[in-house]
Structure formats: C-alpha cells, structure tokens
Design a protein around this nucleic acid. Structure first.
Length: 553
RNA sequence: GCCCCAGUAGCUCAGUGGAUAGAGCGACCGCCUCCUAAGCGGUAGGCCGUAGGUCCGAUUCCUACCUGGGGCACCA
C-alpha cells in the first residue's frame, strides 16, 4: 500500500464516520499523509484529525479515535495509534509495505507516472535566447530546468509542447548581420555589434556558402550576412542543445509572425476586445486595466511594431495552436515581463491564472576564485554551455543546474566546476544505480534471477533498512506529482539523493547474495526484488532529469 | 521610489501549517579476507535575518523593518 492508497483509505474512513452520523464535516477530497522521521510514529502519520477538529466541533483526539477505529479494520493496516494532540500513527500490515516493491517492478519505466492522462495541453517555452551567439552558461540553467520540467509534466500526465522562441527579427539581428559582414570584409566590428571570436567563424562559413558576398551591393550583402549568419548560428544552437539532451518540439520564429501578418492581426483582435487606444501617434494597449503599472505601446509613432506587440502576437499564436496553458520559463532579468504578459492574456479575454504561468528563475552567477565574473554576449566575454559540458560532461552539468530551487540564485565557481567531478551529488545517485546493476549481474552469474514479482515473499522485508527503502520507493509518485504541480524539478533531484542514501545504508546493513557456502533462500529473493525495484526508481528519476543511469562506474 | 526573489550548521543549499529542523561539502574519529569504499557509522556545528500578528500548532502564512541579488523603455 502506497501513501496515496493510505490517503484514500483515510478519506474513506472519514466518509464512513460521517455516514454513521458520528462526525459532522464535509469529507475532504485529499488528506495529508506523512512519512514520520521518528520510527516510533509508525509507517505513516496523518494530522487529519487535527485539521477536522474545528469543523467537527469536537476535540482532536475524539475525532482521531473515530477514525482510528474505522481505519484499523482495513486489511492492510496493522495498527493505528493516537499520539500527541491527535496525530494518527499508522503501522501497515506485514506485507502491505513490501507490496510497494512488487508494484514498482510491475510498473517498470512507468512507475511514478500518472495513472491517466490529463486533459490540459501545456506549452512550455524556455531558453529562447537571441540567436546571435552560442548558448551561454547564463542560458544553460533554463535549458536543463526547462527540459526536465517538460519530462516531469509529461510524466504527470500532461500533453506538453516544448518551445524555443527565436528572435530572428529586429535590431539585434541587424547588428549581428553587420558584425558578420564586417568580419568577412576584414573591417572593424561596429561598436554596438557582436565582438565574440565566433563571429569570424560564422563570417567564414557565410563566405564559403556565398563566395560572392563581398561583391554584392551593401544592402544585399547585409541581408545575406544576417540571414545566413543567423541560420548557421541557429544550427549550432540546436546541435548544442540536442547534444545536451534538451529537446524542443517547436522552434517558433518571430520573423515568421511578422511575415504572416500576425502582429497586425493581434492588434486588430485586441482592438476588438476594447483594450487598444491611440495616443501621441502610437498605438497602445491599456495593460493598466489588468495590473500593469503602465500602458504599453504596440506600434511606435514611426509605424513600426514594438517587441511587446510581437509578444502579444506570439501569445495569440500559441493559444491558437490549441494550448490550454502557456508556461514561460524566464530569468529574473525578465521579471518585469510578468505583469505585461498577464495583461496580454487578460486583454485577449483569457484568465491569466489558468491560461498563463510565468516562472521566474533566479540567475546563474559566475565566480572564479570567489570573484564575480561578468559575461556579455555582445562583448564576446562569456562562457558557453559547450565549455561547461567539455569540463564536466553532460550528466554533471545538467544535474548541478537542476538540483537547486529556481528561487535561489545558482552560483557556479569556474575554478571549482572545472576541477569538481566526484563531489557532485549526481555521482552519489548514479553510484547507487551502478552498484545495484553490478549486484544484479552477480546474481545472474550465480543463477539467481530476480524472482517473478508474484513469487517473492515481500513480508520477509522487515529489517529497518528494508522498511526505510520500501517507504522511500513509495514516495516517488508523490514527488513527481509535487514537482509537476509546483514546477520544481529540483525536488526530483533531492529525492533521488535521499533514495540513494537510503539504498547505500540498506546495502551496508543487509547482505543480498549468499556468500561462502550459504544457499540462496526466500530472503534472497525478496531482497533481490527490493534491489531491482530500487534500480527502477533511480533510473526513472534520473530519466526525468535527463541524466544517464550508468550500469558501471 | 515601486515590484520580484533570497536570508536555515563554517561553506553550498533542501524543507507546498505538524511531533526532537535535514543533506552534501569542509573538520575530527572509526569501518574493506565478504554483493563496487564514488560507500557506511560516529563526533562537533542552529536565536531558521529582526520584531509583531494569525493558528491547537509557524522555518513555512500575514505586516513592518534590516541585509543581499534582480527588475522597473514608443530598447531588443
């Protein structure tokens, strides 16, 4: 019985108490079930009686007694104690906990995933860095987190479309094109242009494709330098991200929105909704109606649409493609966008609370030997995602980027990162997986296969370390669910560290395979089942983070 | 000035109102004749920024303040 099953049983007990006329409350749809730290508090604990006491107008302990009597009748519950102010401390029947291992193996790669799909289609936009340079370390966090979140939301049953918005229109692109052309011609890069060494490489590649580049009229050459350079840059960005294991279902082009007339259509739409006004020769959206601190211009007085206008058109485009909820994963430097995006949603007649979710992640700060390192894409002073991967590999890079809360700034010490390998917690988790794999290989060579799930007697798993491990395995589905709901992929990473620790302690205390002239027995089978189940959960969890689960280390 | 985020062990950080607040790293002391020691056990280390408030119960929610990071365009 998993914690989720137990929660259902408690809800049912409340329902029966109400039906019997012993309790006068509305039956909750969900109740809190915790894994107590203190083993004396049973396998699971619930404060449900404390929470219901007020509504029931009964002392918490009296409510607890009503529920305890009904819960104790459950076949899979051995004992229910009432403790402290009214906690229910629940001890499961001998085999009920062990059944978790059986269930994990039966579910395999789908253990931890939602039982049934949800009907919400989610669009998740992340990275969306300007395609005027390589993927920097500043964007790397969003790549790792966004991709993990997409996997977690998918596991939680949502239909998810991962999306990269390519800003291939506007001033920065023109500056980039001018820089590429200048580099090709051997001229000095304009001051406001891009000064990284990669610009020369792009320029050489553009010239290789268009040997006539420098003979063309300036305007034509500039257009080619822009479009060809951008296309080459984008190819590099895509391959970098693919190599990092990060997948996007859609690469959306801002230029395509312009070309399709989507911006004008969006303005018309907004005007029809009654939120557009004209002032000072410009066209404005009255975003202050929906909580923004100032109204935003859609079209400038010179007739050119603003970037904000493209944002509105893009929002409308995504919704038009059938997505029910749009998630934007943005860095804290874009926090000012939140109010505006909400206003865009509201101005289109949507409810920002349901159709929009803007996640703000704190920035990655880089230090070297304790001193801050500043990066600028334009000045060409930056480190790339590739630099990081070259230094530590994909697994360690992804893991260190995804294991901290988005609300916390992430500090990468470059001296540490390039040296650091074995003190990354990812190895602690991967090692547990490799250790299990090795153990199972040994079992196989001894002729001991993991017993058919039905065959092993899981009731034999009573050692405290075995019980700890079973309880940890039972947590996984709730961890996935919580990580999805709160948009917190780091929760999966932290859970895996916990699970790996519990496994290592089990391994230390409980011998699995027979040694010397011992014979394999029922306990061997049960422990092999438990170990195999642990490997499944470790692999599933690492998979959600896009980190490999090695068979050997 | 206004808005967002953070402040928890020496350091880096977990902890969506529950019982005695945790992990990794660092420090110190132990454990491989045996399934991978990238592991395990133990010791030391805390006014959960400060002050109020709500609650049976607050590290968690609310208010104010202090400190640090980020943001406030007819830029992109």
């Amino acid at each position: 019985m998993t914690p989720a099953d137990l929660a259902d049983a408690i809800v049912a007990a409340v329902g029966r108490a109400v039906a019997d006329g012993d309790l006068d409350v509305t039956v909750p749809t969900t109740v809190t079930v915790e894994r107590p730290k203190n083993p004396e508090h049973g396998d699971y604990a619930s404060p449900v009686a404390l929470q219901l006491a007020k509504a029931a107008r009964r002392p918490p302990r009296a409510v607890a007694e009503l529920l305890a009597a009904r819960l104790a009748a459950h076949a899979e519950i051995a004992r229910v104690d009432i403790a402290g102010p009214g906690f229910l401390n629940i001890t499961l029947a001998g085999s009920a906990l062990g059944e978790i291992a059986r269930r994990v193996l039966a579910a395999g790669a789908t253990y931890g995933h939602a039982a049934k799909p949800r009907d919400t289609r989610i669009n998740l936009e992340f990275v969306s860095a300007n395609p005027t340079g390589p993927v920097t370390l500043a964007s790397a966090r969003w790549a790792a987190v966004g991709d993990a979140l997409a996997r977690i939301l998918t596991a939680a049953g949502f239909a998810v479309g991962g999306e990269y918005y390519v800003n291939d229109a506007g001033v920065q692109v023109a500056r980039f094109g001018a820089s590429v052309l200048a580099a090709a011609a051997g001229r000095e890069i304009p001051a406001e242009g891009y000064h990284g060494a990669y610009v020369a490489e792009i320029a050489a590649a553009v010239q290789a494709a268009r040997p006539d580049l420098l003979d063309l009229p300036e305007n034509e050459a500039l257009a080619i330098a822009s479009s060809e350079g951008l296309s080459l840059m984008l190819t590099e960005i895509r391959s970098t991200l693919e190599g990092f294991g990060v997948h996007f279902d859609t690469w959306a082009s801002e230029k395509a929105l312009h070309d399709a007339g989507a911006l004008a259509a969006a303005v018309d739409d907004l005007r029809a909704q009654g939120h557009v006004f004209d002032a000072d020769g410009a066209v404005w959206l009255r975003t202050t109606d929906f909580g923004d601190d100032k109204d935003r211009a859609l079209v400038k007085s010179d007739g050119a649409p603003t970037y904000f206008c493209a944002d509105a058109a893009y929002y409308r485009d995504k919704r038009g493609r059938g997505f029910d909820q749009l998630i934007y994963l943005l860095g804290a430097d874009h926090h000012g966008y939140v109010a505006r995006l909400k206003a865009i949603a509201a101005c289109f007649g949507d409810d920002p609370a349901t159709h929009l979710d803007v996640i703000i992640g704190q920035l990655v700060t880089l230090t070297r030997g304790g001193e801050a390192v500043k990066m600028s894409k334009r000045a060409g002073t930056f480190l790339t995602l590739l630099d990081l991967v070259d230094a530590v590999g994909v697994d360690a890079a992804r893991y260190s980027l995804v294991r901290s809360s988005l609300d916390s700034p992430l500090d990468l010490d470059l001296d540490l990162v390039t040296r650091q390998t074995s003190d990354n917690p990812v190895f602690y988790v991967q090692y547990a997986h490799a250790r299990i794999s090795s153990l199972l290989r040994n079992a196989e060579s001894l002729g001991l296969a993991v017993a058919e799930p039905q065959a092993a007697d899981v009731a034999l798993l009573t050692h405290p370390r075995e019980v700890d491990l079973l309880r940890a395995l039972g947590e996984f589905p709730r961890v996935v669910e919580t990580a999805a709901t709160l948009r917190g992929p780091h929760r999966v990473a932290r859970y895996l560290e916990e699970l790996a620790g519990v496994y290592h302690r089990f391994y230390d205390a409980c011998r699995v395979l027979p040694q010397g002239d011992e014979q394999a027995g029922p306990l061997t089978d049960a422990r092999l089942l438990l170990v195999a189940a642990t490997r499944v959960v470790l692999a599933n969890g690492l998979g959600l983070l896009g980190v490999s689960a090695p068979e050997r280390m």
